[in-house]
C-alpha cells in the first residue's frame, strides 16, 4: 500500500507555494490530496501509477497539443484561439470542467470532443473525413493532443457543468437513465459496476458514481492508460464500457454519448479534476 508519510511531505510543500496560482493545480497534487481526504481503494489501487504521475507520458501529449492549438491550421489557416469552449474565444482556463454545456451557435449540448470537432471543421475548415478530425484515438492523433492540452488547463478546478439551460438538464437526466439502463445478453448497465465503493472486477477496483471523491478520478479524461500505452478520451471510455457490457457500439459525438458524459460529470460536481490523469 501507499506510504502515506512520503506522500504527505511533498504535498505540503507544494500546497504552500500553490495558493497564488488560482484554481490550477498539477494533477499529481490533486490526486495526493484526494487520497489523503478519502483513502478510497479505487484512488490508491496502483502504487506504481501514483509514483509515475509526475512523469505521466500524457504530459508530452499536452505539450504537443499546446503547439497544435496555437498553430494556424486547416484550409482557413487559422489557430484554435478563436474557438469558444464556453468561456469565450480561446479561454481555456477552467473551461473543460464546465463541459458538457449548451452552445447557442449550434443549439446543442456539446462535450469537449464534439466542440473541438465543431471548431476544427467550421473555424479551421477541415473536412469531416480529414485525419485531423476523423482520427480520434491514440496519443499520436491531433484530437488526443488537443483534448489533452485543453483538459490540462482545468486541472485542480472543481467539476462544474452548467445546468442553466433546459437542454443541459434534459441531457443530464437522460444520461442518468442511460447509465442505469440494463440491456443485452448480460443484463448489464453502467450501474452494475459503478454503484458501490471498493468492489472489484478481477483485481481492478471500480469507481463508484455515488462517491464524488473517487468519481472525479474516474471521469478525469484525457488520461494515459498504462495498459494501452496511449492517452484516451471520455468518448473512448464510453465506447469501452459499452463493449464490455456486451451492448452495441457507442457513436462518438452522439447525443446519447454526450448525455451520459453530462450525467457522469454532474456526479463529480465540486471535486477537483485530475488532468491529465494516468490510469491502469
Amino acid at each position: 500500500m501507499l506510504n502515506k508519510r512520503t506522500f504527505l511531505i511533498p504535498l505540503c510543500l507544494m500546497m504552500a507555494g500553490a495558493s497564488a496560482a488560482g484554481d490550477y493545480r498539477p494533477p499529481e497534487d490533486v490526486l495526493a490530496e484526494l487520497i489523503e481526504k478519502s483513502g478510497s481503494l479505487y484512488l490508491t489501487q496502483s502504487e506504481q501509477n501514483l509514483m509515475m504521475m509526475a512523469d505521466n507520458p500524457a504530459s508530452w501529449t499536452v505539450e504537443e497539443g499546446e503547439a497544435l492549438f496555437h498553430e494556424p491550421r486547416g484550409p482557413n489557416n487559422v489557430s484554435l484561439e478563436g474557438c469558444d469552449f464556453g468561456k469565450g474565444p480561446g479561454v481555456l482556463d477552467g473551461a473543460y470542467v464546465e463541459m458538457p454545456r449548451y452552445f447557442a451557435d449550434t443549439g446543442r449540448v456539446m462535450d469537449l470532443e464534439t466542440r473541438l470537432v465543431h471548431c476544427m471543421t467550421t473555424l479551421q475548415g477541415f473536412a469531416d473525413d480529414d485525419p485531423a478530425v476523423k482520427s480520434r484515438h491514440g496519443s499520436n492523433s491531433d484530437m488526443m493532443r488537443l483534448q489533452s492540452y485543453i483538459g490540462s488547463k482545468s486541472s485542480g478546478y472543481p467539476w462544474n457543468p452548467p445546468l442553466d439551460h433546459p437542454l443541459e438538464t434534459a441531457m443530464r437526466d437522460a444520461g442518468k437513465v442511460l447509465f442505469n439502463r440494463r440491456a443485452g445478453p448480460m443484463d448489464f448497465s453502467c450501474a452494475t459496476c459503478h454503484s458501490e465503493s471498493g468492489k472489484r472486477i478481477r483485481a481492478s477496483v471500480l469507481p463508484n458514481i455515488n462517491s464524488p471523491e473517487e468519481w472525479t478520478k474516474a471521469i478525469s479524461w484525457p488520461a494515459y492508460r498504462v495498459g494501452h500505452q496511449h492517452v484516451r478520451s471520455s468518448q473512448h471510455r464510453v465506447r469501452g464500457c459499452y463493449w464490455q457490457m456486451r451492448q452495441g457500439q457507442s457513436v462518438a459525438g452522439s447525443d446519447a454519448s454526450i448525455a451520459l458524459i453530462s450525467y457522469w460529470t454532474d456526479a463529480a460536481r465540486g471535486q477537483p479534476a485530475i488532468l491529465p490523469d494516468m490510469k491502469r
Partner: peptide, 25 residues
C-alpha cells in the same frame, strides 16, 4: 424538443432514433 420529453423517453430516442449506438451491426 428534448426538453418536452421525459428522461426515459429521451434516453430511448437517443439510442434508437438519434444514432446513439450502431444498431445495424
Amino acid at each position: 424538443d428534448y426538453t418536452a420529453m421525459t428522461p426515459e423517453a429521451l434516453a430511448e430516442y437517443l439510442i434508437f432514433e438519434a444514432n446513439g449506438i450502431k444498431l445495424d451491426q
